[in-house]
Design a protein around this nucleic acid. Structure first.
Lengths: 268, 268
DNA sequence: CTGAAAGCGCTTACAG
DNA sequence: CTGAAAGCGCTTACAG
């Protein structure tokens, strides 16, 4: 199927392509008769302007790339839905980049993040949102950081609920520490004194921050923190079960558990 | 930040842009020394070819559009994850189009489907996947159908678990009727005779097909189908609760319920 | 192994 | 209100 271009429309309407472009974009007044004639041809041929050509010229694509670890983890679709709605209302659409690895090799995930970062830039997205992955690492590799910072000089990058040292990046985040303090406070007010902290990953900054909030609040109330009641092991349902079992197997049991993560249903 | 192009690289390397393009794409032999020089400049400038320009020429973008109703319904991310993995291994990425409406006005959803359909074509995606929405309607509007069929003449369109009259569209689907027959059969083999059918929407083809399978199997076993035990009302958790309560309020109760839907957790 | 030139499908000053 | 022409950043015959 030979695609129709502004030239085809222009020829058939006996005008120049400039004029066609003008009615297409409403960018300058066009005589009513001419405009009508052109409109008719557009409908007749079902003409749709090639966004690639336009973007090449205007240097904007209306596309936002989003790099996330695993779309089957319900946290991300929830975030995505909100972001998407706002973006849509301003004429943007999303380029989805899921970095989860099949083989559960997590190093793989960061490689994929890098690949997607380049890909998105080549595709000339107007902005990139990163959530999860390297931006939650307590000690990310220097190159991992550098890469994002460099990319951030070329296109706006937003880190959602995470961070990376080195400026030039936009951020939106929640106060993990304070959240954990409030949660712990709540348990204490309910009368609990034997509280466990179970879940997350020791190498992730969000887990660490929550643990700090937890520890701080416990100390402030003069409560004991038992080493064997502080367990990490991930964000999956399975890990949650395993850790909980381990906790319950002990001779002494906590009366409350602070799980610094939602134990997402895993789709696997 | 002035972006660097093949021209900049060419000039600095004292070669033509054709040669730069050749090393970029490995599309023709280039003298080692020249290639090395060019590669070095590419790294030095962190040059990334503009995919828009390339796609404009090659008439392929490596992008697949996916139109779905609501990314927060876990069914879709699960499908997406599979599709994405396969696509990724072949160098494609996804353009996500979520059509859910804020205001819960479902007519809105179909309008959005149409908008996204055009948008995706303008963006020159290499293919479109549709799942949910109009392709599950028992009696879709003529225009709704026509629109997709027309689009299908310009770009490959895949209907996932749904259908639309009129050829030219690709399809992948499950046999809803047989699935329902098997499920019903199973309940009967367990000894149940009073079985209810609760959930879904009467205007959706998948619900209808499942109901047909249910009815057929019940009849084949000479079992009675009570009108008041066939209830529809949606796919959400809330609707499931409401319908179930209604069922249990009756004077006689079924011993088993066939819910022709997963009652998805709603993120709202 | 390499270059000059045309072309992908648009938009945008510039000129009238 | 309208047109001719340049240009966005690439790739690809064609010719050597």
């Amino acid at each position: 199927m030979k695609t129709v271009t502004v030239y085809d429309i222009a020829r058939e309407a006996n005008v120049s392509v400039a004029t066609v472009s003008r009615v297409l974009n409403n960018t300058a007044p066009v005589k009513k008769a001419t405009r009508d004639r052109i409109m008719e041809l557009i409908h007749k041929h079902q003409f749709q302007p090639n966004a690639l050509a336009r973007s090449l010229l205007k240097k904007e694509t209306g596309m936002i790339g989003i790099i996330l670890p695993d779309i089957t983890n319900p946290f991300f679709p929830a975030v995505l839905a909100g972001v998407e709605q706002e973006a849509r209302s301003r004429g943007y659409t999303f380029f989805l980049c899921d970095t989860v690895s099949t083989n559960r090799d997590s190093a793989d995930q960061y490689v994929r993040e890098s690949q997607y970062l380049s890909l998105l830039m080549e595709k000339q997205v107007d902005g990139i949102i990163m959530i999860g992955g390297r931006i939650n690492l307590a000690r990310p590799d220097k190159e991992m950081v550098q890469e994002v910072v460099e990319a951030g000089k070329r296109v706006p990058i937003l880190l959602l609920n995470g961070n990376l040292p080195g400026g030039g990046l936009y951020r939106i985040y929640t106060d993990e520490t304070e959240g954990a303090e409030l949660a712990t406070q709540h348990l204490i007010e309910l009368g609990h004194r034997d509280i466990a902290f179970v879940g997350g990953y020791r190498h992730m900054s969000n887990t660490i921050q929550r643990q700090q909030g937890f520890t701080k609040t416990m100390r402030r109330h003069g409560l004991q923190i038992r080493r064997e009641w502080i367990l990490d092991g991930g964000f999956s349902v399975e890990s949650g079960k395993a850790l909980m079992e381990r906790l319950l197997r002990g001779s002494e049991r906590p009366t409350a558990v602070f799980a610094p993560t939602t134990w997402w249903r895993s789709a696997h």
